[in-house]
Design a protein around this nucleic acid. Structure first.
Lengths: 222, 222
DNA sequence: CCAGTATGGCGAACATGTTCGTCACGAACA
DNA sequence: TGTTCGTGACGAACATGTTCGCCATACTGG
């Protein structure tokens, strides 16, 4: 990048290593080349420093990725048109689609929950929608957690499949196992093989959301 | 371990590197020292070979861990007493407790779904219980997926917290963010802060299961 | 204006996953 | 019996995350 500059000290324009700057640069790399390329060493190189220096501002890679996700979450806007449950579905879908675009982020979110402004905003949007649907506060509180859990896990799981080239085989492993289930040993699996393997399209997502909303609104807390 | 033996060829009793043998040894290490210690190098050392040799039988670490999980899943027995939903709850809890004991396994399961006999057995048990509860087959098929997804993700998430020593701080990060939420910017989060942070005890798990069962039984497929 | 000190940057080291090219062994064949 | 061939094992190499300890820089006090 800058071969004539022997020491980075000679360029006073350098932004001097801030946590925000680090995260911003990480987002940049992710947008350009995917989260996989957002490694500590690569990020440090991009910031013209050593990998070890980043650990002053970020505990570890997981936290870095969580920060990246939080930055992206801020871009989810509360939808405007339609009934409350249509808007809930839209938000749900927006969140899932965001994670689908970057499956590694979904896995990150399961390990280290983002707790920045982006996450708080999404939380607030969902709580507002449930409140609008007259869901009691205590159920709504646990409900959003469940909604986000399912969305995140679903993205993490589904996203893993089409990440690496040879992942079709891995996906096929489960499918083959289900299809080839011994009717004597696993009668129900064998009987429902087709249903079990019904592709996870938008229909399935919509059904899942309705299951959750139905359950959340209809199940009082102990 | 065996300093006098210069070459492993001199011990014909060696089990000759089978996938089953590899997985068995991995389970052994995990039981003794936790899944974190089940690394390719360590496992290879235990089997008196090189790490590269393992890749003939196991695609990668994720698949190895999935195989380990599948071996453990086989130990989950279908419960006998009580009504169908009590038994469903018992199975659900057994699965979650298994994953809670080894959180890394839960994360594995989200990335690489186990597809061995253990997983099929669990699937069949759950399908049988839902059928006993008169849940239509198509809903049951998608329902078990959702049940297992929630259980796995819940364990992965919750388990991460008490794994590393400094994780209390990470957990506290989200709690602090929720508690300190600006009532102007995030009114609903602020209002429900206490509810949101209500600890995930057995009550919450039971509620979650009821939410799912209620939703699954009451939501027809499109 | 100079010396001392604290802070943060950073090189080097270690463990890990994964791949590649090579090699030794046993089996099939002449 | 001697030769050839294929399969599986494996050493070495590279990239990664993370930590430790050193050192230069900039600020503080005289």
């Amino acid at each position: 990048m800058t071969p004539p500059a022997p020491s980075r000290r000679e360029r006073p324009a350098k932004p001097a290593l801030t946590r925000d700057g680090i995260v911003a640069q990480a987002v940049g790399i992710m947008r350009a080349e995917g989260l996989e390329k957002v490694t500590m060493r690569r990020l440090a190189q991009e910031l013209d420093t050593g990998a070890a220096s980043l650990y002053v501002y970020v505990r570890n890679t997981a936290e870095l990725h969580a920060a990246v996700l939080d930055a992206l979450l801020a871009s989810i806007e509360a939808p405007t048109g339609g009934t409350w449950d249509e808007r809930l579905a839209a938000t749900f879908r927006a969140y899932i689609e965001l994670l689908h675009a970057h499956p590694s982020l979904a896995r990150s979110a399961l390990v280290t929950r983002p707790s920045g402004p982006g996450a708080l905003g999404l939380l607030d949007t969902l709580l507002a929608l449930l409140r609008e649907g007259d869901v009691p506060g205590d159920r709504a509180a646990w409900g959003v957690d469940l909604l986000l859990l399912v969305a995140t896990a679903s993205a993490a799981e589904h996203g893993t499949r089409d990440e690496t080239p040879g992942s079709a085989a891995e996906d096929e492993a489960l499918a083959a196992a289900v299809r080839g289930a011994d009717p004597a040993a696993h009668p129900h699996v064998a009987a429902l093989a087709t249903e079990l393997l019904a592709g996870p399209g938008p229909d399935r997502l919509a059904w899942t959301l309705r299951v959750l909303v139905t359950g959340i609104t209809g199940t009082p807390r102990p």
